[in-house]
Each structure stands twice: as C-alpha cells, then as structure tokens.
Design a binder for these strands. Structure first.
Lengths: 290, 290
DNA sequence: AGCTAGGGTCAGGAAAACTTAGCCATGCCT
DNA sequence: AGGCATGGCTAAGTTTTCCTGACCCTAGCT
C-alpha cells in the first residue's frame, strides 16, 4: 500500500487499454473477450492502475463492477484516444500490407454466402489476399482491424443482398409437404441465433402450426442437415440460394417473407479509391466491375 | 523471416510508441531518451514492428535513420493518437491526484528561483504537493506529464520574470573591479549552457575585453563559486536576486542588459479554475492572491 | 440448497522488455 | 591519415510484465 505519491512515470499503456475496455463495455469479462485475454488479466491491469493512481476506478459489486466518478470522468477521453490509436494502427497495416483485406462476418454468412464467391474473387484479383474472420456480432468499427464488415442489419453500409425467409428442405422431404400445416408433422430445424424465424414466417403467412425440431448453433450445419433430409429449415434467401440453384434444397412453399433487413457491408475506415479493400467491397456488392 | 502474413492481432502498443517517438524525434537515441530507456530497446521495438508489418519503417544509414515512405505516411496519425493518449493520461492523473502539481524547469531555475519560493507556497497551501523535475530543455507540451513548465523563452506562456544579465561577484572581489576592463584580470565564470552571456554583455556595454575562466555545467554551482570569491559570474537577474538581496553577491557594474527573454510559465493543458495547478501557477506568477 | 454470473486471488510459467557490453560504419577533427 | 565521436546493431542475460489455470467468494435465482 504505497501511500507516498508514485514518481512521475507514465502509466502502463496496456493497463490503460484494459481499463478503457472494461469501462466501455461495463464488465471485465467483456473487456477480456475484446482484448483476447482472460478476465483475470483484466482484473490485474485495473488493479495495477488503481494502485498507481491511488484511487479506485471501479466500485466492485457482487455481480459486476460500476465506474466510480473518477473512472467515469476519465473514460471518455481515453476511449477517444484509443479509437484514434486503433485508426492509426489500421492505417499503418493497410499501408504496409496493401494487398490484404480482412473481412468480419457471421459464421453462417462466411460459409454460405462469402465462401462460394471467393473463387471468382481470387480468379479476378489473384494479388489480393482475403482473410475472413467469423464473429458472432459486428465488431466495434472504431476498433476492429478488419477492413470490411458483412452483417445482417436494417440500415447502414451498403446493401449487398436483401434477406427473406422461407422453408427449405430436401426434394424428397418436400414431396411430403403439400400444405403449410404439414410442417407440424416433420422436424423443423432452427438456428439458435435466429430462433424466431419460424414464428415470424408462420405469422406472416397466417398459419397456426406448432413446429418443433432440433436447434443448431451453426446455421451452416442446419443447412447440411436439411440437405440430408433431416427436416425443414427456415431458409435465409442469400444463404440458401446456392443450394436451391443446385437443387439439393427446394422451397416447398411459395411464400417468401422479407424480414426488413439485408446483408450489409461496411468499411471501418474510408477506403482509398482503388485500394484492395475498395475493390473487394465493389466485387461483393456488385460483382466484379467490367 | 516470416513471409506469411501475420495473423490479425493488434500491433504491440509499446512498439508503436517507440516507433512514433523515433519517427517524431528523428533518431532512436532521442526516442530512447524521451521514453527513458536505452537505445537498444528502441531498436528492438522498431525491428519487431517492422517484422510484424513485413515492411521497413526506417532506412538505416551510417549515422542515424531516415523514415521510409511508409513510415512517413504513418507517423502523423500515430503522433496525434499518442498525443491524445498522453492528454487523457494526464487528465486521469490530475483527477486521481488533485493535490499534486508537477513542475518542469531548468536545474538552475529550480535551485535558484523556484526553491526559495517553495516554503511560502507550502505555508500558504500545505495541502498541495509540489514536485519539481529538472530538465535541460522544455518538455513536449503535448506529451509531458508535468502540469507546469517554467523555462526561459522569448514569448508564450505567462511572463514570470524578465531576464537581464550583469556581472556579479563576492563583495571582496568587487573591490578590485573599477572599470569593465578590469574583468580581463580576474576569472570570469560561465555556464556551459549559457556560454554566450559574456559575449552578449560585453558587446552591449561596448567593451572589448577578453574574459576567461572556468565553465560550469550547473549554473547553481557557478553561483556558489562566485559567492566563494572564485571569480565574476554573469548573473541572470531572477536567479541571483536572492544572493544580491542577502549581500553575498554584488553587482560591480551598473549596466544590466536585457536579453529579450524572460522566465515564462506554461501549462501543458488547460487548468480548471481553482485546481491545484492553477493555484500554484497563480502563486508563481503574482505571488499568493490575497 | 444448489446453480450461475461475475470478480478476486494466487502460483507458476511464458513472453516481453530492458540493460550491458561490445561491434561496426561513417564522418568530423586534428 | 589517424583518432574520435556519433548513432545504430547484436547477443546474452536478467528483470519485469503479462497471462493462464485453478480455485474461492458473493449475490441473486430457482
């Protein structure tokens, strides 16, 4: 417990970053996830910082923490500074590695929408190296090192594909489905992240059927199961288009329900005209420019 | 030599800071001094960064380094970000330790001007803890953690005392000096940092005397020597005022030469009204407010 | 009670950072 | 030319930081 004031040395950068993340996210656990470390590491950083400052930044509560007045007063400026730093860092990377493009997207989109388009992209621009990171949620644009984010959203960014939902299944299974009510008698697959899909679609088509079936945490896995005839899946237009085109999945019912959001593409930072990121974005949005 | 692109992990903060300092100062040695580490540490940081980026940031030359185009393109934004970070850090400290005031100044000023004023300051505001750092040159205002900087300058900040120079010596020695020309026959002390003082004064009074004598790297030491009768020193008004008042030093010649600069006080960041830093600045500039 | 979420703590080990000491090339100064 | 100073590089070794993994603790649910 050093009571004497600490000498005039800089505060550790990593501790400041940990504090900022914790303050912004409101929880050590979330901060730890963002920084890619364990919560214990964040605890230690914040503790070290508080010890150096001789004042508490958080009030510890049984569940979770709350910023003290001091912490609150300090976060905003720190957040701005780290935002600026992340921007500078990203720009530095982009300048040093001008042929690298990093895309962040949902696992399902990565496998079912993006992946099928990559061969054409590679063929058209072999010098560009595209890497894809699957995330459960869109990254903080001011912080992420990704150049592009591709996520379902209602607005913002550039619309790449409208989303609409409708049941899909293997052709064999489709033969057993004549009316919407028949869905009650077959397994109805669902994705845990999109667990309201069935509800929404059934309501939209005015059907009152109780559907049930296994839930998957990976949409791509549910699609595979549907292909294998394991049941009927609520398809998302852009994600099952390929399977429908190849005929391995079919849509037994005509009603397609728009869900008011589409696949949208953002860039975290302005992309210089002609940069690799800008070209990839162009390709994803419109196909390769002629 | 990893040719494969590195995974999408953050660049190390400390390496970025080292690079930024090196780029801004133009030399690894200066950056090392600023960061308070050895040059080897900076070398290592920059090298690590370059390796991560797969591109050179500096061109190594026989003496010194030069930024590459990439380095040049990246510095500015990084500098801004680290400036912001330093600002946030300083504010955080100030909020956490509202009674601490850090002053940066020249060693001579610290000993001869500031130090004599501290007892009154402490008496008037005992709750404020003032710490003083002696630096050879004014710190970078956007970066330093000091609250106040007190340095000789021609403009800027708040003028605290005009500077003027004139010979001073012990009363005994003064008895042997009648005309300016007599200076040629006694040791004339000088400070290595202010080595043109004699030249300036002699030119201003229109004298053509060759003065010689020992040089000191610490002005306060030269003052002590002058008090001990070791020779005549070129006195700086604010710094010898105390000794003149006590009679341990006298000015054998009347001519005082203003040198166009004064002791000036800056604050690195805006000081909230009533803050400890603001009160100390007030005291130093005007004496304690009634 | 038992469970869960969110932190705190501690020991140990990995990685980063720093220092020291010596080396090298260049250019300035005699 | 020789000597010296400058500024950076390198290798070895050490200290410090950082992180993990395992476990404890508390409050609120069920």
């Amino acid at each position: 417990m050093p009571v004497a004031p600490p000498p005039l040395t800089r505060l550790p950068l990593n501790a400041l970053r940990a504090f900022e993340a914790a303050a912004r996210t409101g929880a050590f656990t979330l901060a730890a996830a963002e920084l890619g470390v364990t919560p214990g590491a964040v605890t230690a950083h914040v503790k070290a910082l508080e010890e150096r400052l001789g004042a508490a930044l958080f009030e510890r509560q049984a569940r979770g923490v709350r910023l003290t007045a001091l912490g609150l007063a300090a976060v905003e400026e720190l957040t701005g500074a780290f935002d600026a730093l992340a921007g500078a860092e990203a720009r530095l990377r982009a300048l040093a590695l001008p042929r690298e493009v990093h895309i962040a997207t949902l696992p399902a989109i990565a496998q079912l929408w993006l992946s099928p388009r990559l061969p054409a992209l590679r063929a058209a621009a072999p010098e560009i190296s595209v890497s894809i990171t699957a995330l459960e949620a869109p990254p903080n644009l001011k912080r992420s090192l990704h150049d592009l984010s591709l996520f379902p959203a209602e607005s913002g960014g550039r619309l790449v594909a409208e989303d609409e939902i409708f049941p899909v299944c293997s052709p064999a299974l489709a033969a057993r489905l004549e009316r919407v009510e028949d869905l009650g008698s077959v397994p109805c697959l669902s994705d845990t992240a999109w667990d309201r899909d069935w509800e929404v679609w059934l309501a939209a088509v005015g059907a009152k059927v109780a559907v049930r079936g296994p839930a998957f945490s990976l949409y791509a896995l549910a699609v595979e199961e549907a292909v294998n005839g394991a049941g009927v899946l609520m398809g998302h237009g852009p994600l099952v288009a390929g399977h429908l085109a190849r005929g391995v999945l079919v849509a037994p019912f005509a009603q397609r329900v728009p869900i008011g959001q589409g696949l949208r593409l953002w860039s975290a930072r302005p992309m210089p005209k002609g940069s690799a990121a800008a070209r990839v974005a162009e390709f994803l949005a419109y196909g390769w420019p002629t």
